[in-house]
Design a protein around this nucleic acid. Structure first.
Length: 376
RNA sequence: GCGGAAUUGGUGAAGUGGUUAACACGCCGGAUUGUGGCUCCGGUAUGCGUGAGUUCGAUCCUCACAUUUCGCC
């Protein structure tokens, strides 16, 4: 059962889009936030809990499942859905991000990327063909092309040759792709250079993919403007009828700005990572529950939130769990933070329906950042 | 009662006769954007039991006292 995307509406004042994803007899709406479950689990959460918070697509990772337990074991289990008991759509990242996080530039060749297995030190070679083969066996619903995700400070000349190589890798991956039930996305790179993004997007589109990802946008912590430009430079050259996915993007404001620039899908580790470190996302900004001022705060994280954590537990209790390193605290905060981002996309979709996304953005910023927005 | 040992921050403790008293935990903050890592980065004793003395200078040396602790009667 291959996933189907339908574009439903474009907002009047921005490039924002409303869409539907048909999958397994169910309909999901875009723009959408996708929780990350690198090792075939969204850390601390069960699939039932994810459904309860209206999560749809979740992510998993080729590199990690390749190393452990191994793609053949997942295949023998009946594929990733059966293995982890998740019947919603699953997207797998190709291992491209691990090129960024684990490999050194000299480990990257035309053939592929040499990694040092972070579990035991073994030397491993991941190629576009291998990445696709693994994803075929995992039987995810959306596979990613194997790309190079260069660092934010990469030079123009490096990015240019990197973009060209990622294009050649995309072509090789497409040839290797064998799973008719699985979508395959191409990835647009090119840093913050308009001509490189344009080249990368148009050439990737020529190869013909089921959807398009925008990569290399989540590793610059200096300039949000650059990130937003990279969104625009990419989506401008992508076909309207296909899904667009901003890889690794998940700060609330970045999701809003991404939607405004025509992006449909977002994923990010931040809701679960922040949760494990004691932080809660709220409409009034990020809250650090480790702060002493919450010691006697017997109110929920957000009184108007419909999540399991907010309906049943107080900040003081969750703070205590986090301070005591109890995993239930991380679970409650993960539930809240993911639900927060999903609720954000629900509100974004409502404002696209009424063509009021820009007003929504202004109100969101005013409340989330107060007077300080832009001064950071 | 006699003899010995000890006394450094919230805790466990290192240390030196001379600019800012190590380290760890805790505590107080901050970070975190296609997740190796409950991780990373800051801050946290104007003072080294009390008093007196020696010395240019003492947490460090001397004496007294207090407290704790061990052994003996």
């Amino acid at each position: 059962m291959k996933l189907q995307f339908e574009l439903q509406k474009e907002e009047k004042n921005t490039k924002a889009r409303l869409g539907t994803i048909h999958y397994g007899g169910k309909i999901y709406e875009t723009p959408m936030f996708m929780p990350v479950g690198t090792q075939a689990t969204v850390k601390t959460l069960s699939p039932e809990e994810l459904k309860e918070m209206k999560s749809a697509i979740i992510l998993s990772n080729t590199y990690h499942l390749w190393l452990r337990p191994g793609e053949d074991i997942v295949k023998e289990a009946g594929g990733l859905h059966k293995f982890m008991n998740y019947d919603g759509p699953i997207l797998t990242d190709s291992g491209g991000f691990q090129v960024f996080s684990l490999a050194k530039p000299k480990d990257i060749t035309e053939e592929g990327v040499t990694f040092k297995n972070h579990l035991n030190g073994d030397k491993l070679l991941l190629t576009p063909e291998k990445s696709i083969e693994i994803q075929n066996k995992l039987d995810s619903d959306i596979a990613m092309s194997f790309d190079e995700c260069p660092p934010a400070n990469a030079s123009y000349s490096y990015l240019k040759q990197s973009v060209e190589r990622t294009l050649r890798w995309a072509k090789r991956g497409k040839i290797a792709h064998q799973n008719p039930n699985q979508m395959l996305f191409g990835i647009v790179q090119g840093g913050y250079y308009e001509d490189l993004r344009k080249f990368s997007a148009t050439e990737t589109v020529k190869l013909g993919f089921d959807g398009y990802s925008i990569g290399g946008v989540a590793n610059d912590h200096e300039s949000k403007e650059n990130m937003y430009k990279a969104f625009s430079y990419s989506t401008t050259y992508l076909p309207k009828e296909k899904l667009r996915y901003a890889m690794g993007i998940g700060e609330p404001i970045d999701i809003i700005e991404g939607v405004i620039r025509g992006i449909d899908l977002f994923d990010c580790v931040s809701p679960t990572r922040l949760a494990r470190h004691g932080h809660a996302l709220t409409k009034d900004g990020q809250v650090n529950l480790k702060n002493a001022k919450y010691k006697k705060d017997f109110t929920p994280i957000e009184s108007d939130c419909d999540c399991y954590a907010c309906k049943n537990y107080t900040k003081a209790y969750i703070k205590h769990l986090i301070n005591a390193s109890e995993t239930f605290g991380a679970r409650l905060l993960s539930i809240h933070n993911i639900r927060f981002l999903i609720r954000l996309t629900e509100e974004i979709r409502e404002s696209i329906k009424t063509d009021t996304l820009l007003e929504y953005k202004e109100e969101f910023i005013k409340r989330y950042y107060g007077e300080n927005y832009g001064k950071k």
